[in-house]
Simulated assay, not measured.
Amino acid sequence: MTALRPERESGAAGYGDAGDQGTSYGQPYEVPDALGEWYGQQAYDAAVGEAPLGGGPVDEETMALRVPAPPGESLAAGAAAGTGTAGTTRATEATTGNGATGTTPGGRAARRKAAKRRHRRHAGHVGHGDHGAHAGPPAEPSKDDDQRRPLSRVEARRLARARKPSPAVVASRLIGEVFITTGVLMLLFVTYQLWWTNVRAHAQAGNEASQLQNDWASGKRNPGAFQPGQGFALLHIPKLDVVVPIAEGISNDKVLDRGMVGHYAEGALKTAMPDAKTGNFGLAGHRNTHGEPFRYINRLQPGDPIVVETQDMYYVYDMASILPVTSPSNVGVLNPIPKGSGFTEPGRYITLTTCTPEFTSKYRMIVWGKMVEERPRSKGKPDALVS
């Protein structure tokens, strides 16, 4: 039987010189039958686990098979044929071995456990030499290794407690969310009050004014008693560019919040109509929000016209005086001869009332006027509305 063998060491004794046929160093040569049978038996024993090839131990660190020693050579010489750490190991095992196989006490199982312990102690990997193995320097543990390492139960609990927010943090977050929610709601409320109520009230008042003028043109409405919330006239304040419907009553829902001006026409606060020969025509309106028709009545000066337009007539008043602040319970300002107005005798007056200061309803502001012209609609608009 013939086989290829590794090249021999320079100057070393040959294996079975009788079988060589003048082959040069490093070239294959034929192996005698007896030696081939011996190699085959050794390979079989190593494959089935009876003994390593050549009777030598298997390097547990590299799991590499070594070149077996030929028959007749000592086990020590066979171990010296290895290089590096693995060779030294085999030599030690051959010298202190137990029996012909050269195994250390404890057997292969003990050697495997020892190799595993050595592998765990060193973070590096085992390198392979030409005929042996050596352990590399221990590697530094990295953060990735710590992250990949499974956490114990204690470490997992500690990590969960560290990630869980403290009661103080939870309370502060809750308070912050409450403040943010409250702020958003307040902002929405202010936006609704100052902007949306005006938009809606202007639309409602505009529709009421258009409907009122259409009814006048078609003759559907006749002068007389009006139902609460029913529009019956238009108020013009040219200096403030105000044109707003006048409705019966001072209800917030039916009149004032719809952008209209309300006529005091109920109970103790009942006042005269514009067509009365004497009396005080009292009106109320919002100064802020809901159309705010009386927002700037504080800017009126004596002599500024205030015009009430009905189905048949124009009633023109000249602004006479103003009471900047008074109590809401001061109903004397609506008397036929209004208190504080400066009027001393009966006449045909108009009174405008609204809240003050702005954006509050703590006090009332009063503006008075005296009628100076009564003009039928058939004669056209008065000069106060033309100029």
Results as ranks from 00 to 15, higher is better:
Y39W: 14
Y44Q: 09
P52M: 05
V31D: 12
L53N: 10
L53K: 00
Y29D: 08
G36W: 11
Y29C: 01
E50Y: 14
E61M: 06
E30R: 14
Q27L: 04
G49H: 00
G36M: 13
G54L: 04
V48A: 01
Y39M: 13
P52D: 06
P57R: 09
P32A: 05
G40P: 01
E60F: 04
V48S: 00
G54W: 09
G54T: 06
E50L: 14
A34W: 10
E50K: 15
M63E: 11
G49F: 04
Q42C: 11
A34L: 09
Y29T: 01
L35I: 14
Q27Y: 03
Y29Q: 11
G40H: 08
A47P: 04
V58H: 08
L53H: 06
P28Y: 11
D45A: 13
G54A: 02
Y44K: 05
P57S: 05
A34F: 05
V31Q: 13
A46D: 15
V31L: 14
T62P: 00
E61N: 04
E60T: 07
G36Y: 10
A47H: 05
Q41H: 12
G40I: 14
Y39L: 12
E37N: 08
L53M: 11
Q41C: 09
A46L: 04
E50C: 09
E30Q: 12
D45F: 09
G49W: 02
T62K: 01
Q42T: 13
G36T: 10
T62R: 03
P52L: 02
Y44V: 15
G36K: 08
P32K: 04
Y44I: 12
L53T: 03
D59H: 09
A47L: 14
W38E: 02
A46V: 07
A46G: 03
P32D: 11
T62L: 03
G36I: 03
M63F: 11
G36A: 15
A34V: 12
A46T: 05
G55H: 08
G49S: 02
L35R: 13
A34Y: 13
E30F: 08
E50N: 14
L53Q: 03
G54V: 04
T62F: 03
V58R: 08
